[in-house]
Design a protein around this nucleic acid. Structure first.
Length: 104
DNA sequence: CATTTGACAGGAA
DNA sequence: CTTCCTGCCAAAT
């Protein structure tokens, strides 16, 4: 592989997110090499070519809020899974300060 | 090449 | 705190 699409990079990054942690669309966009393409990242999630290998539920908004999820009951299921994995929540939002994943 | 779309982000009221 | 609007970006058609 030589040159992958932006989406491919996003998927690869999302797959690396460890359990119990989450990342933001914005952060992923930057890791993918296109800072500011948070929207494009969202589109990539929606495309979701491998929802079995891509933990798209570990991707939340810049403020810890979630926007959507194509699985189960949508956002409800998403939150449930995150909480189950150990992600710290504060009401309906994720506490990024404690659970935001970052390259080690 | 032009237009449309979407699971975003940030600022203003 | 909530709601509305604008700006940005990549992919699909």
């Amino acid at each position: 592989m030589k040159q992958q699409t932006f989406y491919s990079k996003v998927y690869r990054i999302v797959k690396k997110i460890p359990k119990g942690k989450v990342s933001t669309y914005k952060a992923i966009a930057e890791l993918a090499g296109s800072p500011g393409a948070a929207r494009a990242v969202g589109s990539a999630m929606k495309n979701n070519p491998d929802m079995n290998t891509i933990p798209c539920h570990r991707v939340v908004g810049s403020d810890g809020s979630m926007h959507g999820y194509s699985g189960g009951k949508g956002l409800i299921t998403k939150v449930l899974m995150l909480k189950k994995e150990g992600v710290l929540f504060r009401g309906e939002k994720v506490i990024l300060g404690k659970s935001e994943w970052r390259r080690n």
